[in-house]
Design a protein around this nucleic acid. Structure first.
Length: 220
DNA sequence: TGCCAGGCCGGGT
DNA sequence: ACCCGGCATGGC
């Protein structure tokens, strides 16, 4: 359900990857030095331009509170003020707090310990945190924990639909399974692939209509 | 200058 | 099970 393209799915998806990689080169994601920075960035970038997110992260760095204990003890209102440039600062402050409380209570505030959890159980646990949906959970696991889970985003979905690989009914989990069941479950591959979809989305195909000239995926 | 960015939740159907 | 409004700043 959702997938249109029949047969040769592995070749198709790998050809897509090859073209994106040749066109944009390695992306070397995630932009972030520490595990906490990656997790916080994943939440802050929800429906938000990364440029705004980096301003918010800078504020947290300057205030020296980009670690679990500091974030745990910081009042939500003060957190909201610091992350203001990232937009939706009130909801995102609560979402960050929910995540921090989750790490604090279940893993003693240690992200290293959190990432020792197996992929499947960790994904379920993260999804139970209010404010962490499938894309955020998969981003945290792939880019923070080096877990082989595929991150689907709006760009990915648009691209799959535009090239008639899936239909309009394809949901997040359908698209994720499409990749994970048809191309190798390799962390480096998944890391680059998602980042390349974002690069594609930024440069091309911003509209909902097909037919952007010089798109590297023309005729896929 | 309006539109949109690397979503998610809660309430209503 | 979907559908939709709300959340908000900064860059082009």
């Amino acid at each position: 359900m959702g997938v249109i393209a029949k047969g040769g799915l592995e070749e198709l998806l790998m050809e897509c990857y090859k073209r994106l990689y040749s066109h944009f080169g390695p992306q070397k994601w995630w932009p972030g030095d520490t595990l906490m920075e990656i997790c916080v960035g994943a939440i802050l970038t929800q429906n938000t331009n990364w440029n705004n997110v980096s301003k918010a992260i800078e504020n947290l760095k300057k205030a020296a509170i980009l670690d679990c204990s500091a974030l745990y003890h910081l009042p939500t209102e003060e957190l909201a003020a610091l992350i203001r440039p990232a937009g939706y600062f009130n909801v995102k402050a609560r979402r960050l707090k929910n995540f921090i409380n989750f790490v604090w209570e279940n893993y003693g505030g240690s992200l290293d310990k959190m990432f020792q959890t197996d992929c499947g159980p960790l994904r379920q646990a993260l999804l139970s945190v209010k404010g962490i949906g499938p894309e955020t959970a998969d981003s945290i696991m792939l880019y923070g924990g080096n877990k082989p889970t595929f991150v689907v985003d709006a760009y990915t979905m648009r691209c799959l639909r535009r090239h008639d690989i899936v239909d309009e009914y394809c949901q997040y989990e359908d698209a994720r399974r499409l990749f994970m069941e048809n191309i190798p479950q390799d962390v480096t591959l998944y890391n680059e692939y998602h980042a390349l979809f974002v690069a594609l989305g930024k440069h091309y195909c911003r509209s909902r209509k097909p037919g952007c000239a010089s798109c590297p995926l023309q005729g896929l």
